[in-house]
């Protein structure tokens, strides 16, 4: 049928639209042309050398400002923030998911709605609300405020992921464990935790990726010296386009694709 073929062609165009811009960045990160980054001028790894702080063959103009040390500091900050927020939000999100799914209490419905709000709300609103709050209570903006601020919405993502896992879990196994005389803590450690572990892991992975990528909320609550990677790149973009952004972007792409791919692969194996 002709329509099916048309649809297939369209589908290919759809994926081209999604992936061509990303591929473009990757390809041009190897472009040797330092003046006009749009014109291909041979293959080079110099942009990668540059961002790793190695010797390069790039002739620098007098106005060129090397921002590599700031880049490295930003990457470090991003990792510190992402690991801390992932740890906190995974514990809190999992605890809330367990409470809402396994206990009957009056506020359960309230928690379900409350935890949905940060995911639906526009980022900018949460960002400025946190900024107002931190300044009003006299908390100096720092890495700590970034961590606290990001956790407020990352908890929701962990909550949703773990809740989905809990919903598919058989309650009777837990009941059997209790009937056989296991203490609630033993039941939790030996039965509940292993069976929700993939959900917890998935939630943690999601929290990590979102934390590494968060721009809007971090932008409002970061101290002047504490730049994360997305904010650093944004700053570079505002000062003008430089070819090494291609290389940074490519490395970030590879990292996210590996992490997200791993997460989605693990999820597909569970089923």
């Amino acid at each position: 049928m002709k329509l099916t073929r048309l649809l297939t062609l369209y589908g290919i165009a759809f994926f081209a639209f999604i992936y061509a811009p990303i591929a473009l960045v990757m390809v041009y990160s190897f472009n040797a042309n330092p003046v006009n980054m749009m014109i291909w001028d041979g293959f080079t790894l110099d942009w990668y050398r540059l961002i790793f702080g190695m010797e390069t063959g790039i002739t620098e103009s007098s106005t060129y400002i090397d921002s590599t040390p700031q880049l490295h500091a930003a990457v470090r900050t991003s990792f510190v923030v992402a690991f801390s927020t992932t740890a906190i939000s995974t514990v809190f999100g999992t605890a809330l998911a367990l409470a809402v799914a396994r206990y009957r209490f009056r506020l359960a419905g309230f928690y379900r709605v409350l935890l949905l709000v940060p995911m639906i709300m526009p980022d900018i609103v949460l960002g400025i609300a946190l900024l107002i709050f931190f300044i009003t209570i006299g908390m100096n903006l720092s890495v700590l405020t970034i961590i606290v601020g990001q956790c407020t919405f990352l908890i929701s993502y962990v909550f949703v992921t773990v809740s989905a896992r809990l919903a598919h879990m058989d309650v009777s196994v837990e009941e059997a464990s209790a009937d056989l005389g296991a203490t609630p803590f033993a039941t939790f450690r030996k039965v509940t935790l292993p069976s929700i572990a993939p959900g917890v892991f998935g939630g943690a992975l999601l929290a990590f990726i979102i934390s590494m990528d968060d721009l809007v909320i971090t932008y409002f609550i970061a101290g002047t010296g504490d730049t994360t990677l997305p904010i650093h790149i944004w700053g570079m973009l505002r000062r003008g386009i430089k070819p090494e952004i291609n290389a940074i972007a490519t490395l970030m792409l590879l990292a996210t694709i590996v992490i997200a791919g791993l997460g989605l692969y693990l999820r597909s194996r569970q089923k």
Binding site: I18, Y19, I22, V25, I209, M212, D213, L215, P230, I233, W234, L237, A249, M252, L253, T256, I257, I259, A260
Partner: peptide
């Protein structure tokens, strides 16, 4: 792509 950095 949802997981790929917005700024990138």
């Amino acid at each position: 792509p949802f997981f790929v950095s917005l700024i990138v």
